[in-house]
Design a protein around this nucleic acid. Structure first.
Lengths: 266, 266
DNA sequence: CGTTCTTATCGTCTTCTGGTGTTATGTTAT
DNA sequence: ATAACATAACACCAGAAGACGATAAGAACG
C-alpha cells in the first residue's frame, strides 16, 4: 500500500507521482533501503534507484550505500513535485480569482509557487501584459506566449524549487516595480505568513517591496500548518485569497486580525 | 522548389526547418501571400499560417491581411531557428575544442549563441561546474544536470533570440566574475567582432568585462560577413577559435592583426 | 574474497505530444 | 452582400521520447 499524502492524485506523470510518494515514504520512515521501496511500490530495483537519484538531485533525500535517509521535512515540503501534487483544484480556483484582478497592459510579478503557475495558464487573452518571475516552469511557458513581455528574474538555480534565488535574484527584483504581486507561502497563521527557507524568504520580501498591490494565494491546507521563518504580517498584503473549502472558523480569525480576505469560488 | 539558404539541412525538426526556409523565402521576396507559400512548400494553408504566426512571434515577419512582409534582414539573421540550422558540424567542433579548456570547479559564462549551446551538451563529466548564461535553451538543459551550479542571467525575453537581455541582464552580468566566457558573434573582420543588434552588443560587452579568459567561437561563415555594430577588437579575446574548414588566407589576416587564433579539429 | 549493493547498457513497450489536414465558423475588405 | 482570407475546433497519424526491467559489469563493504 502506498502512503497517500493527500487526497488528490491527478495531474503529474506516473514516475513523478511515484517519486513524490517515495519521498513521503522516506520522510515518514526516516531512512529506508532500496529493497524496502521495491516491495512497497512494486517496481524494479533499477527504477527505485532512478527515482532516488532524481530525489537526491532535488535535495529531498540523501543516498548512501544501503539506502537513503530523509532531509529535514522543510525541504520535502517545498519540493516542487510534491507541491504540484497537492490541492490542484483549489489552486485553479485561486488562479481564476486572481486573474479577474488583472487588466491588459499591467505588470505582474509571480513567485515560485505552483499557485502562480496555475495563473500563468490563464494569461492568454489578457494581453498585452508584462510578467516578471523567477520560476523556471513559468518562464518556459511564458516564453511561448505572444504579446507578453517576459522579464525573467535570474539567480542561482534551486533544483528543489525549480526556480532562481539568492542575492542575484533579490537584486533583480529590487530594480523593478510592478502593479501586482501574486505569491504564496507554505503556512499562514491568523496574523502572519510563514515560509521554511530563509533564502526564499529573502526573495519574497524583496518582491513584497517591489509591487504596488500584493496578493497572497492560500489554499486551506496552509492555514493549519506552521513554518520556521516569519515572512510578513498578513496586513502587508492588500488581498488574501482563500479557496471555498476553507472553513469559516479559519477565515474569521484572519479578518479579525485585519486581513482583507476574499474567497475564490469553485 | 525551396530556396536552400545554406548547404546544411540536418538537425532541427521538420516544421522548424520549414519555418526557417519560409523566413528566407519571405526575406528574398520582400512580401508574399499565404497561397504563394502553400504552393512553394506543398503544405496546407493552415500550416502556412501556423508557421507565419510563429515567425511573427519571433519578430522575423509582419503579418497583414493577404500576406506577410519581411523585417530587416538583421533580425532574420539573428533568429534562433535560422542559426540552429547553419554550420552545426562546425559548431560541434568548436564546442569540443572549447570543452578541452575547462577544468572541474571552474566558472563559465555563456552568451546566447548556438555555439555555446553545443558546448552545454558536453558539460556532463566536467563537474562540478558553475555556469552563467542568459540563453533559455541552455538554462533549461543545465537545470536538469547534476553537480552544475546554474546561475541564470535574467532580463527581458527576446523571442527572436530565445534569450534574456536589456539593462536588467547587463546589470546581472556586472555583478559577476567568471573564469571563462565563451561567446560568438555574427560577423568577424580581421580586426574586430561585429553584431547587428545594439541590445545584444550591450550584454556581450558586459560579459567581456566580467570574465577573466575570453574565448570567441567563430565558424568560417562568419569571416566573410559584416554587421552593423562593432563589438570589440579581436585582441580583447584571449583566444579566437575557428573551425578546420576555414581557409588559410582568412586566418592569416587575423593573426597579423594580433589575434590568438586556434583551429578546432574535425 | 565473496557478498551485497549500485550503476551501466541495452531492448522493449507504451505513452504522448507534435505536426498536420479538414471542415466549420468568423472577419475583413470591396 | 459576397468573396477572399483568417482563425478556431476537431481528429488523426507518426515518430520520438519516456519509462521500465533484465542482464551484466563494477564498487564498496565485511
Amino acid at each position: 500500500m502506498t502512503s497517500d499524502v493527500d487526497g488528490d492524485t491527478t495531474e503529474l506523470s506516473r514516475p513523478a507521482r511515484r517519486q513524490a510518494e517515495i519521498a513521503a515514504y522516506v520522510v515518514e520512515h526516516g531512512s529506508v533501503s532500496a529493497n524496502d521501496l521495491v516491495e512497497a511500490f512494486g517496481v524494479s530495483v533499477m527504477t527505485v534507484h532512478r527515482d532516488l537519484d532524481e530525489l537526491e538531485r532535488q535535495g529531498v533525500v540523501r543516498k548512501y550505500r544501503g539506502g537513503v535517509s530523509a532531509q529535514p521535512t522543510s525541504v520535502f515540503e517545498s519540493n516542487v513535485a510534491y507541491r504540484l501534487n497537492t490541492a490542484t483544484a483549489e489552486k485553479a480556483a485561486l488562479a481564476r480569482h486572481a486573474r479577474a484582478m488583472i487588466e491588459p497592459g499591467m505588470s505582474v510579478m509571480l513567485d515560485d509557487s505552483t499557485s502562480a503557475l496555475a495563473l500563468v495558464e490563464l494569461f492568454e487573452g489578457i494581453t498585452p501584459l508584462t510578467v516578471a518571475t523567477n520560476f523556471l516552469p513559468a518562464i518556459s511557458k511564458l516564453a511561448e506566449l505572444r504579446d507578453i513581455t517576459l522579464l525573467a528574474l535570474g539567480g542561482i538555480y534551486s533544483p528543489t524549487h525549480d526556480s532562481f534565488g539568492g542575492m542575484p535574484c533579490a537584486e533583480a527584483v529590487e530594480a523593478l516595480h510592478t502593479d501586482f504581486l501574486f505569491c504564496s507561502v507554505s503556512a499562514v497563521s491568523p496574523t502572519h505568513a510563514f515560509h521554511q527557507e530563509e533564502e526564499i524568504v529573502l526573495v519574497k520580501r524583496a518582491m513584497l517591496r517591489a509591487a504596488k498591490t500584493k496578493v497572497l494565494l492560500v489554499d486551506h491546507a496552509k492555514l493549519q500548518r506552521t513554518a520556521l521563518h516569519r515572512l510578513a504580517p498578513l496586513t502587508d498584503f492588500d488581498v488574501v485569497v482563500v479557496d471555498e473549502k476553507t472553513p469559516e472558523d479559519l477565515i474569521t480569525p484572519l479578518r479579525d486580525a485585519g486581513a482583507n480576505v476574499e474567497v475564490a469560488k469553485l
